[in-house]
Design a protein around this nucleic acid. Sequence first.
DNA 1: GGTGAAAGCGAGGACCA
DNA 2: TGGTCCTCGCTTTCACC
Lengths: 153, 153
Amino acid sequence: MDLDRIDRQLLQALQHDARLTVAELAERVALSASPCWRRIKRLEDAGLIQAYQARLSSEALGYGVTAFVSVMVGSHSQDAARAFEARVTEIPEVIACHNVSGRYDFLLEVVAPDLNTFGEFARNTLQTLPGVKELYSSFSLKALKTERHLPIP
Amino acid sequence: MDLDRIDRQLLQALQHDARLTVAELAERVALSASPCWRRIKRLEDAGLIQAYQARLSSEALGYGVTAFVSVMVGSHSQDAARAFEARVTEIPEVIACHNVSGRYDFLLEVVAPDLNTFGEFARNTLQTLPGVKELYSSFSLKALKTERHLPIP
DNA sequence: GGTGAAAGCGAGGACCA
DNA sequence: TGGTCCTCGCTTTCACC
């Protein structure tokens, strides 16, 4: 899908604040409300805007620990990976999961109230997932940038 | 801040869809609009809801590559890390950055249009950041879970 | 903490250039 | 594409329980 300057401005604005009203957005991009609204709809329908979500504070929710867990699955058979994927994505504490290249097979982002709880979680839940051969956990000491705003081309 | 069952329901709902109207939320939690609105305001003011943001599709925006880059900074002096942090957070392609424990010092999430562009970016931008001693890049082969919804306690 | 009402405004559509 | 109007329903803030 082709994006002109106005589309990019809209995406940029909505990425920072999904609560902006069409009227506010329209003013910002120097358009009237209707065409502005239509553009946003178009961006949504095209899948460029995937969702509007509230970003919550993990600290305020009591998650003192954010960990990045690298996982190596035993055999590199399709089945082992498939089973692991199905199970790991269902775990609420695993807030993000990627199949990655390199020494490990998966990279997980995990939240936990404290190190103790995380330790138990790693031992009782992660370690017991199908095919898991090795875990390497790295803890976030300081979150420097977490808004995850994509650069608009 | 203490959260009761209704607060948690509201957070859960808004985390999935920030566009839900107060009226819809009120119905869902079996409350009338007014107190529901006050609760949401309270959650916002308490910092539990940090922002409302549109989640954009990196693929649709032309970012075919998502990489996780582990960075080791040379001396573990305060200054080197400080300088690195200041610079790295300003780079748009770096959509997330954590100071982490373990063998490496920082973990970055980076987007790029393709591997070629990423390679140049790593060489020309990341490698030249202050104090950088070693980079290890791991590429996302498949994003299995990216909504990053926090579990509500 | 909860309800209900009232004012004002935005969403979303019909229609025109 | 962009603009103008129109209407319905929602948000937001009251006063009050």
